[in-house]
Structure formats: C-alpha cells, structure tokens
Amino acid sequence: MSKFSYLFNRSIKFYKLNFKTSIVSFLTLTTIFFIYQFIFTIGYSTNSFFKNLSSVQNVRVYLKTDDTEKINEFIKNIKNLNSVEDIIYYTPEDSYKYLKNNTQNLKYLENISKDFFPSFIEIKLKDNFKDLIFINQIKTEINKFEIVDKASFGEQWVLKFASIKYSLQIFIFIVTILLSISIAFITINVINLNLYKFKEEIKIYSLVGATRTFIIVPFLFASVIEFILSFAISVLINFSIFFGINDYILSSLNINFIKLPNIYIYSAMAVYFFLINVIAAFYISLKFLKKASRIND
C-alpha cells in the first residue's frame, strides 16, 4: 500500500472521528466565506456599474471657428495620433440633429435656431487608450490648438465615478486582508485544539519513531477538507441568494445591477484562501510538534 493512500485513509478516519468537534469551525468558516463573498459580489457589481459609467468613449472638442479649411487641417493632425480610432465632425446642423435624436422634447428644440448649436468634433479613442491619465494628456494636447475652444470628456462625472470605483476596490482589498487574517487564526486555533486533544497519541507516535509527515498529515487533511467544504457551500449559498435577488426582485424592477464574479475570480479566491489555510496549518503543526516531541516533559 502506498504511503499516500495509507495517509489518505488514515486522514479520512481521523476526520470522521473528529467530525463533531470540527462542525463549529466548519460553520464559522462557511459564515465568514459567505459574508466575504456577499460583500465581494456587491463590490464587484458596483465596481462594474461604475466602470461603465466612468469609461470614456470619446473626447468632444468644441471649436472657435467654422472655417472648413482650418477644421480639416485640425482633423488631419488629430488623425495622425496613434490613440485615435475615428473622428466625426458635427456642423451646427448635425449638432441640432444629434440632440434631436437623443431627446424626447422635440417641440422645445424646434423653437431654437440651428445657429445656436455649436459645431464640434467627436474623437473616438482606441480601447487601449481609454485610461484616464492618458485621456487627460490628450485633452491637454488638443486644447493647445488655436481653433479649439474647449475639449472635454465629461471629466466632472467620470472622475467622481472613478473615485467611487477606486474607493470600493480599496474597501474590498481591506476586507480581503482582514478575512485572510481571520482564516489563518481560525485554522491555527482549530488545528491547535485538535493537536492538544491528541497530544498523548502524538507523543506515543513520536516515541515509536513516527515521522512528522505521518503525524501531521491527518490534521492538515482535516483542515483542507473543512476549507473545501466551507468554501464550496458558501459559494452555493451566495449564488442562490444573488440569483434569487436577480430573478425575483431586481428583474421585476428592470434593474440589472448584480453581476456575479466569473469562475476565474472564484478560482483565484479559492486558491488564495487555500494557500492561507495550508500555510497556517503547516506553521502551527510544526510549531506544536517542536514542543510536543519531548516525550518525557
């Protein structure tokens, strides 16, 4: 029988034997993971929402002149920029049509003379150049042209939404750190309790020549099983709750706000907390074995 399968069977036996005592820590872990995933999902959805709001689609440039030659020259210069995907020039009449197509108060618009509508150029940026810092630089460069009255990308709102988005990311980061510490402490406490419970058995195994691997694997295994079950169940509860909220509450209100993280995000989350769990379990097991390996103390 291979060492691995022997240790695996021994670990299963140990876990079954110890199941009752591990229920409390299992419930604690499940609750913590659930709360984290709940906060994460809300944060993720809000982040996606503000990401859409704060994403800059184009830069709008209002001009001082209607001189076609100057305008064409300006467009030609701008087109040479790497970051620009497309440029559309709106004459005052186009500007009027644009507004008319995008509002419902037609009668009100019809009372205004077309001459009052400003001509402008809409510069559509390539996806790779939609970073806020870069867009600000483009805006500054465009403003340097003589014919430009004002260049704008709705920065007032975009910057506000972006700051909300970044604050949320910082919040999720802090919650993640706090949760990591909690997971590590829970793992350490649970394994410590188990190790103390089996202290005499460990001493005897140590006396008869058991290796560290032989002694600690069942404890690590129990911790890993507990982690996997807690994480899986918390994901299931989280999914059920948010599907419920989406299907029964938000969809009837025609709101599409909740966005569940994809499988890659959940996998990364699982791997990260798994590593925290295993490192904490190893640390406390080895620390305990150092103390407990003295047979006759």
Partner: peptide, 9 residues
C-alpha cells in the same frame, strides 16, 4: 529532528 524518528525505531 528529521533523523530522530529513524533512531527511535
């Protein structure tokens, strides 16, 4: 510490 189990056997 790693060699102790083998001695004790």
């Amino acid at each position: 510490p790693k060699s102790i189990p083998y001695l004790r056997r």
